[in-house]
Amino acid sequence: MALDETTEELARVAARGDHRALGELLKRIEPDVLRHCGRILPYRQDAEEACQDTLLAVARNIGRFEGRARFTTWLHIVTANCARTTYRSLKRRSAEQSSDELPLQRPDVARVSVIAGSRLDLLDAMEALEADKPDLAQALVLRDICQLDYSEVAEQLGIPLGTAKSRIHQARKYVQSALGDAYGF
């Protein structure tokens, strides 16, 4: 998300309790949040749901933004977490659907679109990583989804640079192994 310094200042003002600044901030970040959610979730409706969840999370939690890191870094994390939560929720709803209900109106993306199917497989691998090794998942999300550089990941997680690099490497190997199992490599 390439937001400008005005956005950073709006975030600082909103974090101090200015409701007008918060409203302006939410309007300003919405297109970028939607675009970011769309990179994670293959269906526009799902991306829109995750976007709304993200905006709500920002509104509820802006007071926790301390300004130590850039607002965009904080927003990346909130956005990625909301998109992954939306995905888990959709997956759970789909699994809970009984056999006598009408099937979902969506086609099976794994069969329809290689890109969408791969993205869902990646989300499954990330979900497994987070359940098994949450520290690795955090580092991977910051580096590969939020596209922070290694030093920003280390700073955000409060760990040495070498540890951040190691966690990212281990997380990539974990995800690669999970995807290899899914695709028979």
Results as ranks from 00 to 15, higher is better:
Glu24Val: 11
Asn61Val: 03
Thr6Glu: 13
Met1Glu: 07
Lys165Pro: 00
Cys51Asn: 14
Glu66Trp: 08
Ile77Leu: 13
Ser98Leu: 12
Ile145Thr: 03
Leu41Gln: 11
Leu10Pro: 07
Arg60Trp: 12
Met1Tyr: 09
Arg172Leu: 09
Ala137Asn: 01
Ala182Cys: 01
Ala116Val: 06
Leu179Cys: 05
Ala11Leu: 03
Glu66Ile: 03
Val112Ser: 13
Cys51Phe: 07
Gln97Leu: 15
Pro31Phe: 09
Thr7Met: 00
Leu142Pro: 03
Glu101Thr: 14
Ala47Val: 07
Pro31Tyr: 01
Ala182Asn: 05
His76Asn: 12
Leu3Ala: 00
Arg84Lys: 15
Ala15Glu: 02
Asp46Trp: 09
Cys37Tyr: 07
Ser89Arg: 15
Gln176His: 09
Gly63Pro: 03
Tyr43Gly: 08
Lys165Phe: 07
Gly162His: 08
Pro31His: 12
Leu22Asp: 03
Asp124His: 00
Phe65Ser: 01
Phe185Gly: 10
Asp132Cys: 06
Arg35Met: 13
Asp181Gln: 13
Ile77Val: 14
Gly38Tyr: 06
His76Arg: 12
Tyr150Lys: 07
Leu179Phe: 05
Asp149Pro: 06
Arg70Asp: 11
His169Phe: 11
Ser99Val: 10
Glu24Asn: 09
Leu136Ile: 03
Gln170Asp: 15
Leu140Cys: 04
Leu129Gly: 05
Pro31Trp: 12
Val153Leu: 11
His19Gly: 09
Arg167Trp: 12
Ala83Gln: 04
Val13Phe: 01
Leu157Arg: 06
Ala11Phe: 04
Ile145Pro: 00
Gly180Ser: 11
Phe71His: 07
Phe185Trp: 13
Ala137Ser: 06
Asn61Asp: 08
Val175Lys: 05
Ser99Ala: 13
His19Gln: 15
Ala2Trp: 14
Asn81Ala: 08
Val109Arg: 13
Ile159Ser: 04
Arg12Asn: 02
Val112Leu: 15
Thr73Tyr: 06
Arg39Asp: 14
Asp181Phe: 08
Leu142Gly: 04
Ile62Asn: 00
Ser98Gln: 11
Glu127Phe: 06
Leu161Ala: 05
Leu26Asp: 02
Leu129Lys: 03
Leu161Tyr: 14
Cys82Met: 15
Arg167Gln: 11
Glu24Arg: 13
Leu22Arg: 04
Thr163Gly: 00
Val78Gln: 00
Ala83Val: 02
Glu101Cys: 10
Lys173Asn: 14
Ile62Leu: 10
Ala80Pro: 00
Glu66Gln: 11
Cys82Asn: 10
Thr163Met: 12
Gly180Met: 12
Gln138Lys: 14
Ala14Pro: 01
Ala2Phe: 14
Thr54Glu: 04
Ile62Gly: 02
Gly67Val: 09
Glu24Thr: 08
Arg84Thr: 02
Asp53Tyr: 09
Ala50Asp: 07
Ala164Tyr: 00
Gln170Ser: 14
Cys37His: 03
Thr79Glu: 14
Pro134Glu: 04
Ile115Tyr: 11
Glu130Met: 04
Asp144His: 13
Ile40Pro: 00
Arg172Tyr: 07
Glu24Trp: 08
Gln105Val: 12
Ala164Met: 05
Ile29Gly: 02
Ala116Arg: 03
Asp18Leu: 06
Leu136His: 07
Arg35Thr: 15
Ile115Phe: 15
Glu24His: 10
Ile29Met: 02
